[in-house]
Design a protein around this nucleic acid. Structure first.
Lengths: 262, 262
DNA sequence: CTCACCCACTCGTCTAGATACCTAAAGGAG
DNA sequence: CTCCTTTAGGTATCTAGACGAGTGGGTGAG
Protein backbone atom coordinates (compact mmCIF):
# COMPACT_ATOMS: atom_id res chain seq x y z
CA UNK A 1 0.00 0.00 0.00
CA UNK A 2 1.49 3.30 -1.07
CA UNK A 3 1.65 6.04 1.55
CA UNK A 4 -0.54 9.15 1.41
CA UNK A 5 0.84 12.15 -0.47
CA UNK A 6 2.73 14.22 2.11
CA UNK A 7 1.06 17.48 3.02
CA UNK A 8 -2.40 16.20 2.29
CA UNK A 9 -3.07 15.52 5.93
CA UNK A 10 -1.08 16.69 8.93
CA UNK A 11 0.21 14.88 12.00
CA UNK A 12 -1.39 14.25 15.34
CA UNK A 13 -0.63 16.40 18.34
CA UNK A 14 0.04 13.95 21.18
CA UNK A 15 0.10 16.79 23.72
CA UNK A 16 -3.39 17.90 22.78
CA UNK A 17 -6.32 17.18 25.04
CA UNK A 18 -8.40 16.55 21.97
CA UNK A 19 -9.04 12.86 21.38
CA UNK A 20 -7.10 11.31 18.55
CA UNK A 21 -10.18 10.35 16.57
CA UNK A 22 -11.43 13.94 16.81
CA UNK A 23 -8.10 15.29 15.61
CA UNK A 24 -8.26 12.99 12.60
CA UNK A 25 -11.85 14.02 11.92
CA UNK A 26 -10.80 17.67 12.20
CA UNK A 27 -8.04 17.23 9.64
CA UNK A 28 -10.30 15.41 7.22
CA UNK A 29 -13.05 18.00 7.65
CA UNK A 30 -10.62 20.82 7.03
CA UNK A 31 -9.23 19.09 3.97
CA UNK A 32 -12.75 18.74 2.61
CA UNK A 33 -13.60 22.35 3.39
CA UNK A 34 -10.46 23.53 1.65
CA UNK A 35 -11.38 21.53 -1.40
CA UNK A 36 -8.51 19.05 -1.14
CA UNK A 37 -11.19 16.42 -1.51
CA UNK A 38 -13.99 17.34 -3.85
CA UNK A 39 -17.61 16.32 -3.94
CA UNK A 40 -17.95 12.65 -4.72
CA UNK A 41 -14.25 12.09 -4.33
CA UNK A 42 -12.96 9.15 -2.31
CA UNK A 43 -11.20 9.77 0.97
CA UNK A 44 -8.13 7.71 1.93
CA UNK A 45 -9.13 4.19 2.95
CA UNK A 46 -9.23 3.12 6.57
CA UNK A 47 -6.05 1.12 6.06
CA UNK A 48 -4.22 4.10 4.57
CA UNK A 49 -5.20 6.31 7.50
CA UNK A 50 -4.21 3.59 9.98
CA UNK A 51 -0.83 3.60 8.28
CA UNK A 52 -0.52 7.38 8.05
CA UNK A 53 -1.43 8.19 11.64
CA UNK A 54 -0.16 5.01 13.29
CA UNK A 55 -3.45 4.32 15.08
CA UNK A 56 -5.77 1.37 15.20
CA UNK A 57 -8.54 0.86 12.75
CA UNK A 58 -11.35 1.51 15.23
CA UNK A 59 -9.92 4.97 15.84
CA UNK A 60 -10.04 5.79 12.15
CA UNK A 61 -13.57 4.42 11.89
CA UNK A 62 -14.54 6.57 14.84
CA UNK A 63 -13.32 9.61 12.91
CA UNK A 64 -15.35 8.63 9.89
CA UNK A 65 -18.44 8.16 12.00
CA UNK A 66 -18.15 11.76 13.21
CA UNK A 67 -18.01 13.05 9.66
CA UNK A 68 -20.91 10.81 8.68
CA UNK A 69 -22.94 12.21 11.56
CA UNK A 70 -22.27 15.69 10.22
CA UNK A 71 -23.47 14.59 6.82
CA UNK A 72 -20.12 15.45 5.25
CA UNK A 73 -19.22 12.00 3.95
CA UNK A 74 -20.87 8.67 3.28
CA UNK A 75 -19.38 5.18 3.23
CA UNK A 76 -20.04 2.67 0.48
CA UNK A 77 -19.48 -0.91 1.47
CA UNK A 78 -16.60 -2.41 -0.47
CA UNK A 79 -15.73 0.82 -2.24
CA UNK A 80 -14.66 3.50 0.16
CA UNK A 81 -15.69 6.64 1.98
CA UNK A 82 -16.71 9.54 -0.23
CA UNK A 83 -17.37 13.23 0.15
CA UNK A 84 -21.12 13.55 -0.02
CA UNK A 85 -22.23 15.58 -3.01
CA UNK A 86 -24.69 18.36 -2.33
CA UNK A 87 -27.83 17.53 -4.24
CA UNK A 88 -29.67 20.17 -6.21
CA UNK A 89 -32.23 21.84 -4.02
CA UNK A 90 -35.85 22.50 -4.69
CA UNK A 91 -36.90 26.02 -3.85
CA UNK A 92 -40.40 26.44 -2.51
CA UNK A 93 -41.60 29.99 -3.00
CA UNK A 94 -44.19 31.62 -0.81
CA UNK A 95 -46.55 32.08 -3.75
CA UNK A 96 -46.55 28.40 -4.62
CA UNK A 97 -50.21 28.04 -3.73
CA UNK A 98 -51.38 31.16 -5.51
CA UNK A 99 -54.59 30.58 -7.40
CA UNK A 100 -52.99 31.39 -10.75
CA UNK A 101 -50.73 28.34 -10.41
CA UNK A 102 -53.76 26.10 -10.12
CA UNK A 103 -55.21 26.99 -13.51
CA UNK A 104 -52.93 24.64 -15.44
CA UNK A 105 -53.49 20.96 -15.89
CA UNK A 106 -50.40 19.52 -14.28
CA UNK A 107 -49.47 19.51 -10.63
CA UNK A 108 -47.11 22.17 -9.35
CA UNK A 109 -44.47 19.58 -8.58
CA UNK A 110 -44.39 18.23 -12.13
CA UNK A 111 -44.37 21.65 -13.80
CA UNK A 112 -41.64 22.97 -11.58
CA UNK A 113 -39.44 19.89 -11.96
CA UNK A 114 -39.76 19.95 -15.74
CA UNK A 115 -38.77 23.60 -15.74
CA UNK A 116 -35.68 22.71 -13.75
CA UNK A 117 -34.81 19.99 -16.24
CA UNK A 118 -35.21 17.11 -13.81
CA UNK A 119 -37.36 14.02 -13.99
CA UNK A 120 -40.24 14.13 -11.52
CA UNK A 121 -42.25 11.20 -10.26
CA UNK A 122 -45.04 10.72 -7.76
CA UNK A 123 -45.76 7.35 -6.19
CA UNK A 124 -46.91 5.44 -3.12
CA UNK A 125 -50.46 6.61 -3.66
CA UNK A 126 -52.75 5.66 -0.85
CA UNK A 127 -56.16 7.22 -0.43
CA UNK A 128 -58.36 5.98 2.36
CA UNK A 129 -60.62 6.97 5.17
CA UNK A 130 -59.19 6.57 8.65
CA UNK A 131 -59.42 7.71 12.23
CA UNK A 132 -57.98 11.16 12.79
CA UNK A 133 -55.05 11.45 15.16
CA UNK A 134 -55.44 13.78 18.11
CA UNK A 135 -53.31 16.43 16.44
CA UNK A 136 -55.08 16.28 13.08
CA UNK A 137 -58.47 16.30 14.75
CA UNK A 138 -57.56 19.45 16.66
CA UNK A 139 -56.30 21.21 13.57
CA UNK A 140 -59.39 20.34 11.54
CA UNK A 141 -61.78 21.30 14.31
CA UNK A 142 -62.67 18.11 16.18
CA UNK A 143 -63.37 15.70 13.40
CA UNK A 144 -63.43 12.00 14.15
CA UNK A 145 -62.55 10.44 10.84
CA UNK A 146 -60.76 11.88 7.83
CA UNK A 147 -59.81 11.15 4.27
CA UNK A 148 -56.05 10.62 4.12
CA UNK A 149 -54.11 11.02 0.87
CA UNK A 150 -50.52 9.75 1.04
CA UNK A 151 -47.94 10.21 -1.68
CA UNK A 152 -44.20 10.35 -2.16
CA UNK A 153 -42.40 12.71 -4.51
CA UNK A 154 -39.20 11.81 -6.34
CA UNK A 155 -36.77 13.87 -8.39
CA UNK A 156 -34.56 11.98 -10.83
CA UNK A 157 -35.37 8.79 -8.97
CA UNK A 158 -34.48 10.16 -5.58
CA UNK A 159 -37.27 10.42 -3.00
CA UNK A 160 -37.34 13.95 -1.63
CA UNK A 161 -40.68 14.34 0.10
CA UNK A 162 -43.41 12.31 1.74
CA UNK A 163 -46.74 13.99 2.26
CA UNK A 164 -50.14 13.15 3.71
CA UNK A 165 -53.21 15.32 3.24
CA UNK A 166 -56.09 15.01 5.66
CA UNK A 167 -59.59 16.27 4.83
CA UNK A 168 -62.85 16.12 6.78
CA UNK A 169 -65.16 13.45 5.39
CA UNK A 170 -68.10 15.82 4.99
CA UNK A 171 -66.03 17.73 2.48
CA UNK A 172 -64.17 15.00 0.67
CA UNK A 173 -66.32 11.87 0.63
CA UNK A 174 -67.81 11.05 -2.73
CA UNK A 175 -65.94 13.83 -4.53
CA UNK A 176 -62.98 13.68 -6.93
CA UNK A 177 -60.82 14.44 -3.89
CA UNK A 178 -61.41 10.86 -2.77
CA UNK A 179 -60.10 9.56 -6.10
CA UNK A 180 -56.44 8.54 -6.48
CA UNK A 181 -56.05 11.23 -9.12
CA UNK A 182 -58.07 14.29 -8.17
CA UNK A 183 -57.62 15.92 -11.59
CA UNK A 184 -55.99 19.11 -12.87
CA UNK A 185 -54.90 21.66 -10.30
CA UNK A 186 -54.93 19.11 -7.48
CA UNK A 187 -57.22 18.99 -4.47
CA UNK A 188 -57.07 22.73 -3.90
CA UNK A 189 -58.71 23.30 -7.30
CA UNK A 190 -61.37 20.69 -6.41
CA UNK A 191 -62.00 22.28 -3.03
CA UNK A 192 -62.72 25.62 -4.68
CA UNK A 193 -65.03 23.97 -7.22
CA UNK A 194 -66.91 22.46 -4.31
CA UNK A 195 -67.52 25.90 -2.91
CA UNK A 196 -64.73 26.03 -0.36
CA UNK A 197 -63.01 29.18 -1.56
CA UNK A 198 -59.53 29.19 -0.09
CA UNK A 199 -58.50 32.19 1.93
CA UNK A 200 -55.06 31.47 3.32
CA UNK A 201 -52.68 28.76 4.49
CA UNK A 202 -50.79 28.37 7.73
CA UNK A 203 -47.52 26.52 7.71
CA UNK A 204 -45.65 25.22 10.74
CA UNK A 205 -42.03 24.27 10.23
CA UNK A 206 -39.82 22.08 12.35
CA UNK A 207 -36.48 20.40 11.68
CA UNK A 208 -35.31 17.20 13.34
CA UNK A 209 -33.48 13.97 12.69
CA UNK A 210 -35.53 11.39 10.80
CA UNK A 211 -37.08 8.30 12.33
CA UNK A 212 -35.83 4.95 10.95
CA UNK A 213 -39.03 4.70 8.90
CA UNK A 214 -38.36 8.09 7.35
CA UNK A 215 -34.78 7.12 6.59
CA UNK A 216 -36.14 4.17 4.67
CA UNK A 217 -38.91 5.99 2.84
CA UNK A 218 -36.75 8.91 1.79
CA UNK A 219 -33.52 6.89 1.33
CA UNK A 220 -31.78 9.36 3.59
CA UNK A 221 -28.04 9.29 4.10
CA UNK A 222 -26.65 9.52 7.61
CA UNK A 223 -26.49 13.06 8.90
CA UNK A 224 -29.36 14.42 6.82
CA UNK A 225 -32.15 15.98 8.87
CA UNK A 226 -35.73 16.34 7.73
CA UNK A 227 -37.93 19.38 7.50
CA UNK A 228 -41.34 18.67 8.94
CA UNK A 229 -43.98 21.00 7.53
CA UNK A 230 -47.62 21.04 8.58
CA UNK A 231 -49.84 23.16 6.40
CA UNK A 232 -53.44 23.99 7.19
CA UNK A 233 -55.71 25.41 4.49
CA UNK A 234 -58.51 27.77 5.55
CA UNK A 235 -61.51 28.77 3.51
CA UNK A 236 -63.02 32.24 3.48
CA UNK A 237 -65.31 31.29 6.35
CA UNK A 238 -62.31 30.54 8.52
CA UNK A 239 -62.82 26.81 8.50
CA UNK A 240 -59.80 24.49 8.26
CA UNK A 241 -60.55 22.38 5.19
CA UNK A 242 -57.28 20.48 4.82
CA UNK A 243 -54.16 19.63 6.78
CA UNK A 244 -51.08 18.51 4.87
CA UNK A 245 -48.30 16.83 6.83
CA UNK A 246 -45.06 16.82 4.86
CA UNK A 247 -41.64 15.36 5.64
CA UNK A 248 -38.86 16.57 3.35
CA UNK A 249 -35.24 15.57 2.96
CA UNK A 250 -33.62 18.71 4.32
CA UNK A 251 -30.71 18.63 1.90
CA UNK A 252 -33.09 18.85 -1.04
CA UNK A 253 -35.07 21.92 -0.03
CA UNK A 254 -34.91 25.62 0.54
CA UNK A 255 -38.16 27.15 1.74
CA UNK A 256 -38.84 30.74 0.94
CA UNK A 257 -41.44 33.03 2.49
CA UNK A 258 -42.51 36.58 2.14
CA UNK A 259 -43.59 38.50 5.23
CA UNK A 260 -45.37 41.83 5.29
CA UNK A 261 -43.78 44.60 7.34
CA UNK A 262 -47.08 46.12 8.28
CA UNK B 1 -24.54 -6.18 39.31
CA UNK B 2 -28.22 -7.06 39.37
CA UNK B 3 -29.80 -8.24 36.13
CA UNK B 4 -32.29 -6.13 34.17
CA UNK B 5 -35.98 -6.57 35.00
CA UNK B 6 -37.20 -9.31 32.67
CA UNK B 7 -39.57 -8.13 29.97
CA UNK B 8 -38.05 -4.67 29.86
CA UNK B 9 -35.96 -5.54 26.85
CA UNK B 10 -36.28 -8.56 24.58
CA UNK B 11 -33.73 -11.01 23.24
CA UNK B 12 -31.60 -10.92 20.12
CA UNK B 13 -32.57 -12.81 17.00
CA UNK B 14 -29.40 -14.59 15.91
CA UNK B 15 -31.01 -15.66 12.63
CA UNK B 16 -31.77 -12.07 11.67
CA UNK B 17 -29.76 -10.31 9.01
CA UNK B 18 -29.97 -7.18 11.08
CA UNK B 19 -26.71 -6.41 12.86
CA UNK B 20 -26.71 -7.06 16.59
CA UNK B 21 -26.03 -3.45 17.50
CA UNK B 22 -28.96 -2.37 15.35
CA UNK B 23 -31.24 -4.89 17.03
CA UNK B 24 -30.23 -3.55 20.42
CA UNK B 25 -30.79 0.02 19.26
CA UNK B 26 -34.20 -0.99 17.90
CA UNK B 27 -35.24 -2.47 21.22
CA UNK B 28 -34.08 0.55 23.17
CA UNK B 29 -35.78 2.91 20.74
CA UNK B 30 -39.01 1.00 20.99
CA UNK B 31 -38.84 0.94 24.77
CA UNK B 32 -38.38 4.72 24.75
CA UNK B 33 -41.23 5.21 22.29
CA UNK B 34 -43.50 3.06 24.42
CA UNK B 35 -42.67 5.12 27.45
CA UNK B 36 -40.83 2.36 29.29
CA UNK B 37 -38.11 4.94 29.71
CA UNK B 38 -39.31 8.46 30.23
CA UNK B 39 -37.77 11.80 29.41
CA UNK B 40 -34.66 12.38 31.46
CA UNK B 41 -34.67 8.82 32.73
CA UNK B 42 -31.48 6.76 32.76
CA UNK B 43 -31.12 3.84 30.38
CA UNK B 44 -29.44 0.62 31.55
CA UNK B 45 -25.68 1.07 31.79
CA UNK B 46 -23.35 -0.32 29.17
CA UNK B 47 -22.28 -3.06 31.57
CA UNK B 48 -25.87 -4.09 32.25
CA UNK B 49 -26.62 -4.36 28.54
CA UNK B 50 -23.41 -6.31 27.96
CA UNK B 51 -24.65 -8.71 30.62
CA UNK B 52 -28.24 -8.83 29.35
CA UNK B 53 -27.46 -9.44 25.68
CA UNK B 54 -24.19 -11.34 26.09
CA UNK B 55 -22.28 -9.08 23.69
CA UNK B 56 -19.15 -7.03 23.99
CA UNK B 57 -19.12 -3.51 25.24
CA UNK B 58 -18.23 -1.95 21.87
CA UNK B 59 -21.40 -3.46 20.44
CA UNK B 60 -23.51 -1.85 23.11
CA UNK B 61 -21.74 1.46 22.63
CA UNK B 62 -22.42 1.19 18.93
CA UNK B 63 -26.13 0.91 19.71
CA UNK B 64 -26.00 3.97 21.92
CA UNK B 65 -24.22 5.93 19.22
CA UNK B 66 -27.09 5.22 16.82
CA UNK B 67 -29.62 6.56 19.30
CA UNK B 68 -27.43 9.57 19.98
CA UNK B 69 -27.27 10.26 16.26
CA UNK B 70 -31.05 10.25 16.18
CA UNK B 71 -31.09 12.74 19.02
CA UNK B 72 -33.06 10.34 21.22
CA UNK B 73 -30.56 10.00 24.06
CA UNK B 74 -27.48 11.70 25.40
CA UNK B 75 -24.62 10.33 27.47
CA UNK B 76 -23.25 11.98 30.58
CA UNK B 77 -19.74 11.03 31.54
CA UNK B 78 -19.66 9.23 34.87
CA UNK B 79 -23.44 9.17 35.21
CA UNK B 80 -25.11 7.24 32.44
CA UNK B 81 -27.09 7.49 29.25
CA UNK B 82 -30.37 9.37 29.47
CA UNK B 83 -33.46 9.87 27.38
CA UNK B 84 -33.12 13.38 26.01
CA UNK B 85 -35.89 15.63 27.23
CA UNK B 86 -37.69 17.69 24.59
CA UNK B 87 -37.02 21.32 25.39
CA UNK B 88 -39.79 23.90 25.27
CA UNK B 89 -39.99 25.38 21.81
CA UNK B 90 -40.14 28.97 20.77
CA UNK B 91 -42.83 29.66 18.23
CA UNK B 92 -42.05 32.31 15.67
CA UNK B 93 -45.22 33.69 14.16
CA UNK B 94 -45.41 35.18 10.71
CA UNK B 95 -46.44 38.57 12.07
CA UNK B 96 -43.42 38.84 14.33
CA UNK B 97 -42.06 41.79 12.38
CA UNK B 98 -45.32 43.67 12.15
CA UNK B 99 -44.86 47.35 12.79
CA UNK B 100 -47.14 47.28 15.81
CA UNK B 101 -44.68 45.02 17.63
CA UNK B 102 -41.96 47.62 17.21
CA UNK B 103 -43.72 50.33 19.14
CA UNK B 104 -42.71 48.98 22.54
CA UNK B 105 -39.44 49.60 24.23
CA UNK B 106 -38.13 46.09 24.65
CA UNK B 107 -36.98 43.72 21.96
CA UNK B 108 -39.39 41.12 20.67
CA UNK B 109 -37.27 38.33 22.07
CA UNK B 110 -37.35 39.69 25.62
CA UNK B 111 -41.07 40.45 25.60
CA UNK B 112 -41.99 37.09 24.22
CA UNK B 113 -39.76 35.17 26.62
CA UNK B 114 -41.15 37.01 29.62
CA UNK B 115 -44.65 36.20 28.46
CA UNK B 116 -43.69 32.53 28.30
CA UNK B 117 -42.30 32.72 31.82
CA UNK B 118 -38.72 32.01 30.85
CA UNK B 119 -35.57 33.97 31.49
CA UNK B 120 -34.21 35.59 28.32
CA UNK B 121 -30.70 36.84 27.78
CA UNK B 122 -28.80 38.33 24.85
CA UNK B 123 -25.03 38.25 24.70
CA UNK B 124 -21.93 37.99 22.53
CA UNK B 125 -22.52 41.44 21.14
CA UNK B 126 -20.17 42.34 18.35
CA UNK B 127 -20.77 45.29 16.10
CA UNK B 128 -18.19 46.10 13.48
CA UNK B 129 -17.61 47.04 9.91
CA UNK B 130 -16.25 44.29 7.69
CA UNK B 131 -15.90 43.03 4.16
CA UNK B 132 -19.12 41.59 2.79
CA UNK B 133 -19.08 37.95 1.76
CA UNK B 134 -20.04 37.13 -1.79
CA UNK B 135 -23.48 35.98 -0.73
CA UNK B 136 -24.23 38.96 1.48
CA UNK B 137 -22.98 41.36 -1.16
CA UNK B 138 -25.31 39.82 -3.72
CA UNK B 139 -28.29 40.00 -1.43
CA UNK B 140 -27.65 43.63 -0.50
CA UNK B 141 -27.03 44.68 -4.08
CA UNK B 142 -23.27 44.62 -4.66
CA UNK B 143 -21.97 46.35 -1.60
CA UNK B 144 -18.31 45.99 -0.70
CA UNK B 145 -18.30 46.51 3.02
CA UNK B 146 -21.06 46.18 5.59
CA UNK B 147 -21.90 46.79 9.21
CA UNK B 148 -22.20 43.42 10.95
CA UNK B 149 -24.13 43.01 14.20
CA UNK B 150 -23.63 39.65 15.91
CA UNK B 151 -25.55 38.43 18.92
CA UNK B 152 -26.57 35.25 20.65
CA UNK B 153 -29.92 34.62 22.29
CA UNK B 154 -30.38 32.45 25.35
CA UNK B 155 -33.48 31.12 27.11
CA UNK B 156 -33.08 30.07 30.73
CA UNK B 157 -29.33 29.96 30.20
CA UNK B 158 -29.51 27.78 27.15
CA UNK B 159 -28.25 29.28 23.86
CA UNK B 160 -30.94 28.86 21.23
CA UNK B 161 -30.04 31.19 18.39
CA UNK B 162 -27.07 32.97 16.87
CA UNK B 163 -27.76 35.82 14.51
CA UNK B 164 -25.80 38.28 12.41
CA UNK B 165 -27.35 41.32 10.76
CA UNK B 166 -25.61 42.92 7.81
CA UNK B 167 -26.37 46.48 6.70
CA UNK B 168 -24.90 48.63 3.95
CA UNK B 169 -22.52 51.25 5.35
CA UNK B 170 -24.26 54.15 3.62
CA UNK B 171 -27.33 53.34 5.67
CA UNK B 172 -25.87 52.33 9.01
CA UNK B 173 -22.63 54.23 9.53
CA UNK B 174 -22.82 56.96 12.12
CA UNK B 175 -26.38 56.08 13.15
CA UNK B 176 -27.70 54.38 16.30
CA UNK B 177 -27.68 51.18 14.25
CA UNK B 178 -23.90 51.14 14.60
CA UNK B 179 -24.21 51.29 18.38
CA UNK B 180 -24.12 48.10 20.47
CA UNK B 181 -27.61 48.92 21.70
CA UNK B 182 -29.66 50.44 18.89
CA UNK B 183 -32.49 51.46 21.22
CA UNK B 184 -36.18 50.63 21.56
CA UNK B 185 -37.76 48.62 18.74
CA UNK B 186 -34.40 47.43 17.45
CA UNK B 187 -32.74 48.25 14.16
CA UNK B 188 -35.96 47.99 12.20
CA UNK B 189 -37.40 50.89 14.18
CA UNK B 190 -34.20 52.86 13.54
CA UNK B 191 -34.27 52.09 9.84
CA UNK B 192 -37.76 53.51 9.56
CA UNK B 193 -36.76 56.62 11.51
CA UNK B 194 -33.94 57.09 9.04
CA UNK B 195 -36.44 57.16 6.21
CA UNK B 196 -36.17 53.57 5.06
CA UNK B 197 -39.81 52.58 5.39
CA UNK B 198 -39.95 48.81 5.45
CA UNK B 199 -42.15 47.11 2.89
CA UNK B 200 -41.64 43.40 3.31
CA UNK B 201 -39.22 40.67 4.33
CA UNK B 202 -38.04 37.59 2.49
CA UNK B 203 -36.97 34.56 4.49
CA UNK B 204 -35.04 31.58 3.20
CA UNK B 205 -35.07 28.47 5.34
CA UNK B 206 -32.73 25.53 5.29
CA UNK B 207 -32.09 22.73 7.78
CA UNK B 208 -28.79 20.90 8.16
CA UNK B 209 -26.44 19.43 10.73
CA UNK B 210 -24.40 22.02 12.60
CA UNK B 211 -20.72 22.74 12.03
CA UNK B 212 -18.42 22.11 15.01
CA UNK B 213 -18.34 25.86 15.63
CA UNK B 214 -22.13 25.97 15.78
CA UNK B 215 -22.19 22.99 18.14
CA UNK B 216 -19.95 24.96 20.45
CA UNK B 217 -21.77 28.28 20.21
CA UNK B 218 -25.23 26.80 20.68
CA UNK B 219 -24.15 24.00 23.08
CA UNK B 220 -25.91 21.54 20.81
CA UNK B 221 -26.38 17.92 21.79
CA UNK B 222 -25.56 15.21 19.27
CA UNK B 223 -28.35 14.60 16.80
CA UNK B 224 -29.79 18.10 16.94
CA UNK B 225 -29.92 19.85 13.54
CA UNK B 226 -29.98 23.59 13.03
CA UNK B 227 -32.41 25.75 11.15
CA UNK B 228 -30.59 28.25 8.99
CA UNK B 229 -32.71 31.27 8.23
CA UNK B 230 -31.66 34.15 5.99
CA UNK B 231 -33.96 37.15 6.11
CA UNK B 232 -33.73 40.12 3.78
CA UNK B 233 -35.57 43.33 4.60
CA UNK B 234 -36.78 45.48 1.71
CA UNK B 235 -37.86 49.10 1.89
CA UNK B 236 -40.73 50.58 -0.09
CA UNK B 237 -38.38 51.45 -2.93
CA UNK B 238 -37.48 47.80 -3.31
CA UNK B 239 -34.00 48.17 -1.93
CA UNK B 240 -32.56 45.47 0.35
CA UNK B 241 -31.63 47.37 3.50
CA UNK B 242 -30.67 44.51 5.79
CA UNK B 243 -29.78 40.83 5.67
CA UNK B 244 -30.06 38.79 8.86
CA UNK B 245 -28.35 35.41 8.97
CA UNK B 246 -29.69 33.26 11.79
CA UNK B 247 -28.75 29.80 13.00
CA UNK B 248 -31.21 28.25 15.43
CA UNK B 249 -31.14 25.08 17.51
CA UNK B 250 -33.81 23.13 15.67
CA UNK B 251 -35.19 21.48 18.79
CA UNK B 252 -36.02 24.86 20.27
CA UNK B 253 -38.05 26.33 17.43
CA UNK B 254 -41.23 26.04 15.47
CA UNK B 255 -41.55 28.54 12.65
CA UNK B 256 -44.98 29.58 11.55
CA UNK B 257 -45.99 31.35 8.37
CA UNK B 258 -49.14 32.55 6.79
CA UNK B 259 -49.55 32.31 3.03
CA UNK B 260 -52.19 34.00 0.95
CA UNK B 261 -54.25 31.77 -1.33
CA UNK B 262 -54.65 34.42 -3.96
C1' DC C 1 -20.96 15.57 63.43
C1' DT C 2 -18.06 17.08 59.52
C1' DC C 3 -15.08 16.50 55.98
C1' DA C 4 -11.58 14.41 53.24
C1' DC C 5 -10.70 10.43 50.99
C1' DC C 6 -11.53 6.11 48.80
C1' DC C 7 -13.96 3.19 45.87
C1' DA C 8 -17.45 1.46 42.87
C1' DC C 9 -19.76 2.60 38.87
C1' DT C 10 -20.11 5.11 34.81
C1' DC C 11 -18.87 6.59 30.09
C1' DG C 12 -14.58 7.92 26.92
C1' DT C 13 -10.80 6.43 24.33
C1' DC C 14 -7.73 3.22 22.24
C1' DT C 15 -5.58 -1.24 20.87
C1' DA C 16 -5.29 -5.59 18.17
C1' DG C 17 -7.12 -8.58 16.28
C1' DA C 18 -11.02 -12.02 13.66
C1' DT C 19 -14.63 -12.85 10.38
C1' DA C 20 -17.91 -11.48 6.96
C1' DC C 21 -19.30 -9.39 2.91
C1' DC C 22 -19.08 -6.11 -1.06
C1' DT C 23 -16.79 -4.25 -5.36
C1' DA C 24 -13.99 -4.07 -9.26
C1' DA C 25 -10.61 -5.66 -12.09
C1' DA C 26 -7.85 -9.39 -13.86
C1' DG C 27 -7.61 -13.79 -15.83
C1' DG C 28 -9.20 -18.25 -17.49
C1' DA C 29 -12.81 -21.42 -19.54
C1' DG C 30 -16.04 -21.95 -22.94
C1' DC D 1 -15.98 -12.47 -27.39
C1' DT D 2 -18.74 -13.68 -23.21
C1' DC D 3 -19.14 -15.38 -18.78
C1' DC D 4 -17.43 -17.21 -14.55
C1' DT D 5 -13.85 -17.44 -11.00
C1' DT D 6 -10.34 -15.56 -8.49
C1' DT D 7 -8.19 -12.09 -5.91
C1' DA D 8 -7.05 -7.73 -3.95
C1' DG D 9 -8.65 -4.13 -1.49
C1' DG D 10 -12.57 -1.95 0.61
C1' DT D 11 -15.97 -1.43 4.60
C1' DA D 12 -19.17 -3.82 8.33
C1' DT D 13 -19.42 -6.12 12.44
C1' DC D 14 -17.83 -8.10 16.60
C1' DT D 15 -14.75 -9.59 20.44
C1' DA D 16 -11.75 -8.92 24.62
C1' DG D 17 -9.40 -6.10 27.16
C1' DA D 18 -6.79 -1.87 28.88
C1' DC D 19 -6.53 2.58 30.80
C1' DG D 20 -8.54 7.33 31.65
C1' DA D 21 -11.62 10.29 33.90
C1' DG D 22 -16.09 12.14 35.95
C1' DT D 23 -19.64 11.18 39.74
C1' DG D 24 -21.45 10.15 43.91
C1' DG D 25 -21.95 7.54 47.97
C1' DG D 26 -19.84 5.46 52.00
C1' DT D 27 -16.46 5.39 55.49
C1' DG D 28 -13.15 6.49 58.68
C1' DA D 29 -10.32 10.13 60.83
C1' DG D 30 -10.64 14.10 63.32
Amino acid sequence: MSPLPSGLLGDLDPTSDRAVFRQIADQLREAIDRGRFREGEKLPSEAELVEHYGVSRMTVRNSFSILQGEGLVHAEHGKGVFVRPRPPVRRLASDRFARRHREQGKSAFIVEANAAGSHPQVDSLEVKEEKASQDISTRLGSVRRVLARRRRYLLDGRPVEFATSYLPLDIARGTPIAEPNPGPGGIYARLEELGHRLDHFEEEIRARMPSPAEVKTLHLAAGVPVIHLIRTAFDTEGRAVEVCDTVMAADAYVLSYQLPAT
